[in-house]
Amino acid sequence: MIEVVVIIVAVVSAIIALLQNDLLKAAILTGISGFCVAILFQLLLAPDVALTQAIVEGAIVPVFIALAVLKTRRREA
């Protein structure tokens, strides 16, 4: 059951991230989606990949995006 929830959260947060007007929120939602994929990797019997994914896509990438957003413009339009 938990797998289905994780998959749905991952995909839905990815979609919401792209519909968001506030880019900072989009960055955070990217992180949530990346972290859900990390859990999915754990469930798919790939624990070391899950660790890397949790650090890189769950933490580093959102921080990069957030930094870029803070240096540019927060609103999309």
């Binding site: 990815a14 991230a17 792209l18 880019l23 989009a26 960055a27 990217t30 989606s33 990346g34 994929v37 999915l40 990797f41 990949v49 994914q53 896509e57 990438v61 995006i65 870029a68 957003v69 540019t72 999309e76």
Partner: peptide, 17 residues
């Protein structure tokens, strides 16, 4: 542009998955 880049991150994530 930033959203394009987020989209590209999703493509890579999908390929990895």
């Amino acid at each position: 542009l930033i959203k394009k880049i987020i989209g590209i991150a999703f493509i890579e994530e999908g390929a990895n998955l």
